[in-house]
């Protein structure tokens, strides 16, 4: 029974990692951009939600709703003003620019909010739980998992059922031909990064509600998210969800054996998957 419980906890944790990873996966899949600042942007989102909540007295869920358009605009501005200028054949410039951005955001937050750890106050729902067959599940982890599924469903709908998604796929497959069809890749990229930051804000809400956060936790979250994206395969959103679940379950079982092994088990699962499938489980696009 303890193993079933561990499995369920691992799957729920994997949902959170899939949320961290979904925005990254979208950007990675469309423009091959490795955004090393994604983890710090999630933490930035958490502080934004906290700030809006404190200023207006709103519940974090409503504060997050207000934060969404702000983060979308920030994402578009970031892509149009900075990242579009370094995208190209050479992967080094975007890697180094987002790396610099990560250091700037992290230390900017440290200056503004100090190193104290914070939490988003949700009230009684934090401690609530639902009995589900033989195991009891916390309401918040369940909500996180449900949101992850919804986000992946929404992104997939956007990707495969809308004109914008068609433009996304076309630019991903062949930017030059897409341009011939009247698509401006630079604009498409800006919208994609905006959407990625909307997803990052949703991730930030659950990150901040689940546990304490401080300005320094971005890079570790980024690493889990990247592992999820790579395990899933480039450009596959469902793959990213699967990748998140693999990391989450591996971490939960690692922690069940020895609390010190939690993170290690996740990394080892990542290495094992890549040894067997260097392109991930469900690659959609060629890199």
């Amino acid at each position: 029974m303890i193993w079933l419980d561990t499995l369920v906890q691992g799957l729920l944790l994997g949902g959170l990692y899939a949320l961290f990873a979904a925005g990254l996966s979208l950007v990675f899949g469309i423009m091959r951009l490795v955004n090393l600042a994604h983890g710090d942007l999630i933490v930035l989102g958490a502080y934004l939600i906290l700030g809006i909540g404190t200023a207006t007295g709103l519940n974090p869920f409503l504060a997050a709703l207000l934060a969404l358009p702000v983060m979308f605009a920030l994402g578009m501005a970031l892509q149009a003003g900075l990242l579009n200028r370094v995208l190209g054949e050479d992967i080094l410039p975007p890697l180094l620019v987002t790396f610099g951005l990560s250091v700037v955001i992290q230390n900017g937050l440290l200056t503004a909010f100090s190193a104290d750890s914070r939490k988003l106050p949700l009230g009684p729902v934090e401690a609530a739980s639902v009995p589900l067959g033989p195991v009891t599940i916390g309401t918040m982890p369940l909500l996180t998992f449900g949101s992850a599924i919804l986000v992946i469903l929404a992104l997939n709908w956007l990707f495969y059922r809308t004109a914008l998604g068609r433009a996304f796929r076309a630019t991903s497959d062949d930017p030059v031909t897409a341009q011939l069809m009247g698509i401006r890749p630079q604009r498409i990229f800006a919208v994609a990064t905006g959407i990625a930051l909307v997803v990052a804000t949703i991730a930030a809400l659950y990150l901040g509600a689940r546990a304490n956060f401080d300005p320094s936790i971005g890079p570790a979250r980024l690493l889990y998210a990247f592992e999820a994206v790579i395990i899933g395969g480039l450009g596959s959103l469902w793959g990213t969800l699967a990748g998140g679940l693999v990391i989450g379950v591996a971490q939960a079982f690692g922690a069940a054996l020895n609390p010190e092994w939690q993170i290690l088990a996740g990394h080892i699962a990542f290495v094992l998957v890549l040894l067997l499938r260097p392109r991930g489980l469900f690659p959609r696009a060629l890199d």
Partner: peptide
């Protein structure tokens, strides 16, 4: 042997994960 199977950005993330594995292993 592990990292050279990965290219470009995958290589960067792969080496980062390996370094974290080393850190966690040595703390044991």
């Amino acid at each position: 042997f592990f990292a050279f199977r990965l290219h470009g950005a995958y290589f960067a993330i792969g080496t980062w994960a390996v370094a974290d594995i080393a850190r966690l292993s040595f703390s044991q």
